[in-house]
């Protein structure tokens, strides 16, 4: 059963000052079955964020439709949890209150939501930082908190827009493994936007490649690498190496070799 259906999506932006039209997405269709981890990659400016924003309900598409479990998407909602590149944690709330926020909004009692939030904080490895404010945390810790905040409400699907782009390379690898570890426990459906080929291949069951703007689906590639995955043996994995090369070629990054 297809769980998320993105059907013939089209998005034209109109500049309010010049009245110029930009066709960001020409015609994008794909489906994601329940429990799959799917990455959306493509060159910068091809409309990845736009697709994710439409699925999240932040932007209304100029054409096409999105259905989640057969129900058309209209506006944002807690069934689709979003992890943002800039974390989007509430600066005036502690880590605990941030993680409990979704539960509070959905009428869960205080004791119960704090218990759940604590569980999520432990899960993402932030124990001991419950009372800290976001500005007191490192970038990596903030993104852990943001992931915990989304997990707490048990969304049907998680939407992540370049979630690790604002953290340093070292932390990024750790977080990629961490998110996979957590994902393995729950197998929530994930739509993951990135422009990083390595990240897409490492994380996903499937990688959908968008062409340059106005974008269409250029390729849809299955990643047969066994889970659990870890970066330590990834660069010697034949599937990883060959898929990576194939994707690099598609994105026009010719001659790229795997870093040792």
């Amino acid at each position: 059963m297809s769980f998320l259906t993105v059907d013939r999506l089209n998005q034209v932006y109109t500049d309010v000052y010049t009245n110029e039209h930009t066709v960001a997405i020409d015609d994008v269709s794909f489906t994601i079955p329940a429990g799959e981890f799917v990455s959306l990659i493509g060159p910068s400016g091809c409309g990845k964020t736009t697709v994710l924003n439409i699925v999240a309900g932040f932007v209304e598409a100029t054409g096409g439709a999105v259905q989640l479990e057969g129900v058309p998407v209209a506006g944002p909602g807690p069934d689709r949890g979003v992890v943002f590149q800039d974390f989007a944690l509430f600066p005036w709330k502690t880590v605990l209150a941030n993680v409990a926020f979704g539960l509070k909004m959905n009428g869960v009692g205080k004791a119960e939501r704090q218990a759940t939030a604590q569980e999520m904080i432990d899960l993402v490895g932030l124990s001991g930082f419950e009372r800290k404010f976001p500005h007191e945390l490192s970038g990596g810790m903030r993104q852990r908190a943001a992931v915990a905040r989304v997990l707490a409400t048990e969304p049907s699907i998680m939407l992540m827009d370049e979630p690790f782009a604002s953290v340093d390379a070292q932390t990024r690898r750790v977080l990629q493994q961490e998110v996979l570890r957590i994902w393995d426990l729950r197998r929530t459906t994930v739509l993951f936007v990135t422009h990083d080929v390595d990240e897409a291949v490492f994380m996903s069951d499937r990688v959908i490649v968008l062409s340059t703007r106005p974008s269409q689906v250029q390729a849809d590639i299955r990643i047969p690498i066994e889970r659990p995955r870890s970066w330590t043996d990834m660069h010697t994995n034949e599937d990883f190496v060959s898929i990576r090369r194939e994707l690099m070629g598609m994105l026009g990054v010719e001659g790229a070799e795997v870093a040792p």
Binding site: P76, R80, F84, F90, F101, G102, V150
Partner: peptide
């Protein structure tokens, strides 16, 4: 920031 408003509404506020 727009993303704070988006985050809040997507969490069900």
């Amino acid at each position: 920031p727009t993303n704070l408003l988006r985050a809040a509404s997507s969490l069900g506020a």
